[in-house]
Write a protein that binds this DNA or RNA. Structure first.
Lengths: 301, 301
DNA sequence: CTATGAATTCATTTTATTTGAATTAAGGTG
DNA sequence: CACCTTAATTCAAATAAAATGAATTCATAG
């Protein structure tokens, strides 16, 4: 396939005829014919109905739809690459929820900036709804968070899923068990993050379904503070696996036995600036790579 | 940009040198050099570090990442188009949740099959988790449902968001109000769909937060049955807007006043068969178009 | 049965790509 | 440090593709 012919095809479709396309593109009529013939020969299907009135074949409509984004992507890439000529490597205003920002991002961003040292990067840490709002307002280019109540103006791309685990003080009686059920925690205090947090809602739902209302809870706004509270013996928390497994001397992680909860994190950006500006596209790619690897690592373990 | 040069560039990168790429692609070494030079000239940046050891420049790494999907898309399109040569227009095993299947799909699928009459289409109606499961098992090519608890094996693409509205019997006392608060429904019976339904969970959460536990509820498994129940005066239901506004003689729709709930529907498919087979890609495109239009239509109304 | 707008054919010209032989460049080795 | 090796580049010539213009076909509205 040839991008020149592809482009000609699209012009033909949008202008509704070979002649008009030829005129627009400064080709002879015969050139246009040749290009389309070549394209059709290559694909092995007729694309354009050659009657009196201009019409695409079914295959043609299809090809038109499917090839549109190829053209768009090529143009986008070209435009962005020539920006680099000017010495701009690009900047990224990234948002991230706390557990990601604290436990995954440091190493990932380190390697990212090693590869692309010229990119300017800022990281804004907040909870998912706040981050989503900032993305919408254009204050952030993209953010890593859990799937929000997506409106049509936001585009979410899942990156990885984590299980929640119980985080328990090392000297707690329940620490002896390898997995813990809801029944076990009935009479222990549960530490929860703020109401805006996505898993907070999932956890609450689960608590209500299994234990009713009589669970003793305590709200802590910050995820990493939560850990310190657990370690002081204030209670049990439910946290993403990756967060719990870092240096476990004073607290231990235990699996959820009867009602496993998972949370999905991904990249959220505005539909309006899609495709992403180049630096963001790089970071997105880098993140996907990084999480894919750590993911398969987890599976093996 | 030229696809031939682009492909050569990728071969160079994957084989780690101009010579090896030339050999693989049956080119003279000079051809490879020329192609890369042309590419670099066109983009205005150097892509490959020309030292002793083979290495990409920063721009090169970037270009490599960003152009990869263009190559992949072109190959995919080419492969799929030639399938059509064999007369296969493709088949789609589509899943859909009930409100979508009953209220949106009929017209959309009608126009879709008018455009692509040769495509074989089947529609499987179930709730979101069941549909997601069938997609995972490969029993469905794609499904329209609300955002699930996405694992890394599933890919969700949001299409449109709807608000929930109260559906009230026409002769009900609350039908006189134009918008309804949770306080208003405290002492009325609420009809809910099955527990597996996605909005069921959202609604329950809202009910609990605002009314505590003392709400009288009744479970109805089917969405469209729900409507008949409402019309018989059995109680009030919360349903997606589009479902409520169809022929409103015996029931009326009222906005949620104090705690608006929205649900997002989208396309769910397996990450494994991405990019989608051609027929599915067509349908996805068609759905997006259709919902985009009805969306903006709603906004105006 | 023409007149007309639209697409195609084909021989020719123009342009781009490819090639091979020679050249440069950068390490490694004795 | 000369010499070898491997890798990339240069450049004129050969080859292949793409573009052109004039002539031709085709369908159909008048």
């Amino acid at each position: 396939m040839d991008l020149k012919s592809l482009n000609t095809f699209h012009r033909i479709v949008s202008l509704g005829g070979f002649n008009r396309a030829a005129e627009e593109l400064n080709y002879a009529q015969s050139t246009v014919t040749m290009q389309i013939q070549k394209l059709e020969a290559e694909l092995g299907v007729q694309l354009i109905e050659r009657g009196r009135v201009f019409q695409l074949t079914e295959a043609g409509r299809l090809f038109h739809e499917q090839s549109a984004h190829i053209i768009r992507d090529v143009e986008h890439l070209q435009a962005n690459m020539s920006d680099m000529l000017l010495g701009e490597a690009g900047s990224i205003r990234l948002g991230a929820v706390e557990p990601i920002a604290s436990y995954h991002l440091p190493t990932i961003l380190y390697s990212f900036l090693e590869t692309y040292p010229k990119i300017e990067l800022s990281v804004d840490i907040a909870n998912s709804p706040v981050l989503a709002d900032r993305v919408l307002k254009g204050e952030l280019d993209m953010t890593i968070c859990s799937a929000p109540a997506i409106g049509s103006d936001l585009y979410f791309e899942p990156i990885f899923t984590e299980s929640l685990v119980y985080l328990i003080p090392a000297n707690h009686p329940l620490a002896a068990q390898s997995a813990i059920s809801f029944a076990d925690i009935r009479h222990h205090r549960i530490l929860l993050t703020s109401k805006t947090c996505t898993y907070r809602q999932r956890i609450e739902l689960a608590l209500r379904e299994t234990c009713g209302h009589q669970v003793d809870t305590l709200d802590i706004s910050s995820m990493s503070a939560l850990k310190s509270y657990v370690e002081s013996g204030l209670g049990i928390a439910l946290v993403p696996e990756s967060m719990a497994t870092v240096d476990g001397t004073r607290s231990v992680a235990r699996k959820m036995n009867d009602y496993p909860i998972t949370v999905t994190f991904g990249i959220l950006c505005k539909t309006a600036n899609y495709p992403l500006k180049l630096a963001c596209a790089k970071l997105r790619y880098h993140l996907k790579q990084a999480f894919d690897h750590s993911d398969s690592g987890n599976r093996d373990a």
